[in-house]
Simulated scan of single mutants.
Amino acid sequence: MILIVSNKEDIHPTPVIEHFETMGVPFFRLNTETLLSDYEFEWLSNPYCGDDFHLKNLHTGLEVFGHDINSVWERRPLVPSELRSVNCKEVNEHNLKEAHGFLSFLLYYLGDRYCLGHHLYDRSSASKMLQLKLARQLGMNIPDTCFANNKAAVREFSNNYDIVCLKSIDNDNIWFEEEMQEHVLYTQAVKSNELLALPDEAFFQTVTYLQNYIPKAYELRITVVGTETFPCRIDSQEMEAGCGKIDWRQGLDKGLHHSKCHVPKAVSDFCTTFLKRLNLNFGCFDFIVTPENDYVFLECNPNGQWLWIEQETGLPISKCIADTLIIHDKKQHK
C-alpha cells in the first residue's frame, strides 16, 4: 500500500494518483490539515500484536493499516487546522497542537519505509549552508556566499564584486495586513555600492543572504526521482529585468520558455550523489549555466514543485514518481 501525505489544495498528487488508478495500485491519501476532522485513527502497541496503526477516511470509508504501508510520498503536508466541533480558542489551539505532535511522531515512525520526501531529512537538508558545503565537497562550482547580520561583514564580502545577488533564506514573502497584500521577495541583483549605502539598521535588523552575481547563458531545473533525472532548460536570459531575467519565478506567467535538455553525466551523477548523501530520494535542483558552459549549483529543494515542468515540457515526472513508489511497495512485499 502506498501512503500519500499531502494537503487538499496540492494538485501535484493528481497526475500520480491517475497513474495508480490506471494500474490498479492501492493507495491512501492523507490530507493532514484535516487530520482531526476527516479521519479516524489509532496507533496501538501491546505484547500481542506489536505496534501498528489504522487510518480511516470518514467521507470515503477508505482505510489503511500501518503494516500494509511500504512506500510513502510525503508531499508538503500542512499542520492540522480543522476540527469537527469547536470549543474555546485555547482548547482548540491545544487540540490542534496535539494533533500536530501526533502527526509528526507518526511520520517519524514511518521513516524506515521507502520515502519520497522525508519528515526527518527534508528540513535539515534544506539548509543552504549544508547544501553549499556538500556541493563544494562533491567538486561542483558554487557561488561565493555570505550570511550576516552586520554591515562590516556585508561590506567585506561585497567589496569584491560590482554586483551581488540579495536572496531570501527561508521566507520569500511578506503579508501586509493593512493593505491585504502579499509582497514576494524575489532574488535581486544590486550594485555593491548601492547596497552598502543603506543604513546600519538595514543589516542588524535581519539576516542578509548574499552571493556574487554570476552571468548566465540559461538556467536549469533538474528534478530527481530516485536515480532518474529530468533536466529542464529555463531560458531566463531571454526575459527583461523584473520579468524573469534575474529570478526566473517572475517570468512564469510572462511566457518564460522551458524545454527538455541533456546535461553532462557528471552533473546528473552529482545530483543523485548529493541526494544519497542527504538520505533523500527526491529533490529539485537549480543551476546556472554560464556563457562559458560552466555549471554552477545554486540550491536543491528537497520537496520542490515540478508539475509545471511536466506541463511545459512533457517530461514524465509524475509517472516516474508513481512507478518508483510502486516498485518499492512491491519490493517490501517479497
Rank of each mutant, 00 (worst) to 15 (best):
M1S: 10
V5C: 07
K8A: 09
E9G: 00
D10K: 03
H12K: 12
T14Q: 13
T14K: 13
E18G: 06
F20E: 04
G24P: 06
R29H: 04
R29P: 05
E33M: 01
T34G: 06
S37D: 06
S45E: 15
Y48G: 04
Y48S: 11
D52G: 02
D52E: 03
L55G: 09
L55K: 03
K56Y: 03
H59G: 04
H59Q: 13
H59S: 15
L62K: 15
G66I: 04
V72G: 06
P80D: 02
E82G: 00
R84K: 15
S85F: 07
N87Y: 14
C88E: 13
E93W: 05
G101F: 03
F102Y: 14
L103N: 08
L103F: 08
F105G: 06
L107V: 06
G111S: 15
H119Q: 14
L120W: 05
A126D: 10
K128L: 05
M129L: 14
L134Y: 00
P143F: 08
D144V: 02
N150F: 02
F157S: 08
I163E: 12
C165L: 14
L166V: 11
L166Q: 01
D172H: 13
I174R: 08
W175V: 06
M180A: 12
E182T: 14
H183A: 12
V190R: 01
N193F: 14
A197T: 04
L198C: 09
P199W: 01
D200P: 03
E201H: 05
Q205C: 10
A217V: 01
A217S: 15
T223V: 15
V224P: 08
G226K: 02
T229F: 05
D235K: 10
S236H: 00
S236C: 14
E238T: 12
K245N: 11
I246S: 02
R249G: 11
R249W: 06
Q250W: 02
G251R: 02
K254Q: 13
L256R: 03
H257V: 15
H258N: 11
K260E: 12
F270W: 10
K276V: 03
R277F: 07
N279A: 13
C284F: 03
F285I: 04
V289N: 01
D294S: 13
Y295M: 03
E299I: 07
P302K: 07
W308Y: 15
E310V: 09
G314A: 10
T324W: 00
L325E: 10
I326Y: 02
K334V: 13
